[in-house]
Amino acid sequence: MTRPTPTPAPAPTAKSTTAAATPAQPPAPAPTSALSVSRTTATAARVLRQLRHDPRTIALLVLIPCVMLFLLRYVFDGSPRTFDNIGASLLGIFPLITMFLVTSIATLRERTSGTLERLLALPLGKGDLIAGYALAFGTLAIIQSALATGLAVWFLDLDVTGSPWLLLLVALLDALLGTALGLFVSAFAASEFQAVQFMPAVIFPQLLLCGLFAPRDTMHPALEAVSDVLPMSYAVDGMNEVLTHTDMTATFVRDVLIVGGCALLVLCLGAATLRRRTA
């Protein structure tokens, strides 16, 4: 067997050594379209596989909302009406907060570990990556919300007039909104410390103004106007619609469309923050 040595003028057609096998070649160069289903699902599967190696995170994600609801139920032991209101709102807020945190850290790690640079040097569309993350965390959010909703409705006597499926739908959209916000915000965080600090910066004002603590129409008019343009207000509003109405009301449809639209808009903004070329 001849081993190639660094001679000054190597013939590229040198006698073949058996050591390096010729790799299997794809028949044609793979297309680099804006959104490829198989690349998106591969990304989602990869994100979920990463999480599977981290069972503690999964346990925390799934169990904490349930524990909080349980706690809340007995905090308001004397006034079940209050529990109905706050509990339903929280069913929408939990997925938003947890997905925001998980996504912002996960994308930040992707940026700092160099894997994002590598991925963007490969034929991966920015949309594939964003959609992959949204799909993976959306799946996780379904599990989280299903457990929390099931616990609240069947075991903690949360009194819902409408269908629990609608609660689940709003929760899922909230989770997507959280994922979108997390993706977007991670572009502006240089470290995990900063990423975590974006949580109070982005989520807390929405939490105060969403109508959880005081009805929005009783706030100072300026704050009410601000709360009108924050997506979490509509998430909580949607939950309360399900709580008090048997059918899908027009307000509910509006709320769902606003939350979904915001999630989509922020996801696009997040995609715009991914740069193939960096300084």
Partner: peptide
Amino acid sequence: TQAPSVYDDLTIRQNLDYFAAILDPG
């Protein structure tokens, strides 16, 4: 890249499976 850019929370094969799926999807 100079610093290894792979996913620490995946196995070697899972890492390569993912990047291969990006290069040669379907």
